[in-house]
Design a protein around this nucleic acid. Structure first.
Lengths: 242, 242
DNA sequence: AACAGAGTATTTGTCTCACAAATAAGCGAG
DNA sequence: CTCGCTTATTTGTGAGACAAATACTCTGTT
């Protein structure tokens, strides 16, 4: 059972519902949302709840409100796409557009190999040891188990932290929120290839502070994930059509 | 004259004030904000305004509210550092910490050269022509003028768009919000070196679809900016101490 | 008929008050 | 001293009213 938060406050739940309906394209950019009074009525909550939800969305650049003209959905390029919540919302409905998934993996291929290089150069012995422990856990539990996936997240989080660049950490936190969903897709479409050997290679490279090898291993890891994910989406796409 | 918005709504202004006081470290992570009633009183607004401002901040991961325990400032690594507004707030007070500026330029050195490579490969003739126009304007107005700086922004925005990767666009939009402030610092500390030759090199590389040269030119551009900015901060730091 | 201006209606923005729900802290029993 | 209950405080939600801004309409003028 997923450790679902018992119950989010109404304004948070509302922001999610509205946010999902926007990022999935159900409500297109340029269009106007119903007035706050109408929204409150149709969702069965007070106007204050609606307003607080809208403020969260406007903070992410999704909407803009003006007196008399109402609340309109902003153009997609004005959205704060790197917001972790927003990225998560992208994967709430069906599979996201293929172009978006490709953009995501392209960004990963730019950022994460560079991060691995930095980590290989700057990691402390303590970080290396924690990295080894995470790798052990991944190996023993396997990527198809919950603790195994948690160890995987941990593994990559430690690498990021080792870069000692808080912007990189923040960026990858956003990305991994989305990656988590692509991983889910992969498993839903069938057992993907085993990524443990590549993880092992990455660990070894970081252990001997070999930046070039760390980069290569990361590129391999992401390239493999990109392939598997594309195939999974294609497969699930067929299933949906059928 | 800067096209300053006449007057932001109270909740937006409030979010900014509180946000700045948080990201500048004035209110440290872990500490609790005053209660909503107290905040409303001290700022002379209604509680609803306070709440809407807090919802914006919580959407950016800055704070978390719980009944009875109040609203607490979250740990820095939980912040959504890539939020453009948040990044802007970092530069509102005095100069930001040197480590942060270094992280920023390190991230630029990872992302923007890769983007330049992609742009060199994928740019359309139309984009190349617009790029040339922006370069012309930069040359004629000079980087020390407002229209010149606007053309500079435009120049880099076109390159990003040419990557046809919306996540890269979003990321660089965030970054450039911050870069704008570093540029200001540079000019305040004295006339920086002329970056037009490097811009010209970058344009030429993109024009002949030479990805490697585009990367090299971008690395040069950012490296130069990083140096100038560090010197500027050091200089201004001296001035402040004196 | 085209246009400019004032007026109006609608929508968000702000304020007030009230109560519900959750929970941290204090209190008391064992 | 520990555990469980009570309670007080704080956020969460609700209802209603008025203010402010502005898109729209309607009128009067050219």
């Amino acid at each position: 059972m997923i450790a679902r938060k018992r119950e989010a406050p109404a304004h948070v739940a509302l922001a999610r519902r509205l946010g999902v309906s926007i990022v999935t394209g159900e409500r297109p950019p340029g269009s106007a949302l119903p007035g706050e009074i109408d929204l409150a009525e149709s969702f069965g909550v007070a106007r204050s709840v609606i307003r607080e939800a809208l403020r969260m969305l406007s903070g992410k650049g999704l909407v803009v409100s003006k007196p008399k003209s109402g609340t309109r959905i902003r153009e997609r390029h004005e959205w704060n796409l790197l917001d972790p919540q927003l990225l998560g919302w992208m994967f709430e409905g069906a599979a996201p557009p293929l172009t978006f998934v490709r953009s995501l993996f392209q960004l990963r291929l730019i950022v994460e190999p560079a991060a691995a290089e930095l980590a290989a150069r700057q990691r402390t012995p303590r970080q290396l040891s924690r990295l080894g422990y995470a790798l052990e856990e991944m190996t023993s539990y396997g990527l198809d188990s919950e603790p195994g996936r948690a160890a995987d997240q941990q593994f990559h989080a430690i690498i990021l932290k080792a870069t000692s660049n808080e912007l990189l950490v923040s960026l990858s936190a956003s990305i991994s929120a989305a990656v988590r969903w692509t991983t889910l897709f992969k498993w839903r479409a069938g057992e993907p290839r085993d990524s443990l050997p590549e993880h092992q290679r990455l660990f070894d490279a970081i252990a001997r502070s070999d930046a070039a090898a760390a980069r290569a291993a990361t590129v391999g890891l992401i390239g493999q994930a990109a392939l598997d994910t594309e195939q999974a989406i294609a497969k699930l796409g067929e299933a949906e059509v059928a």
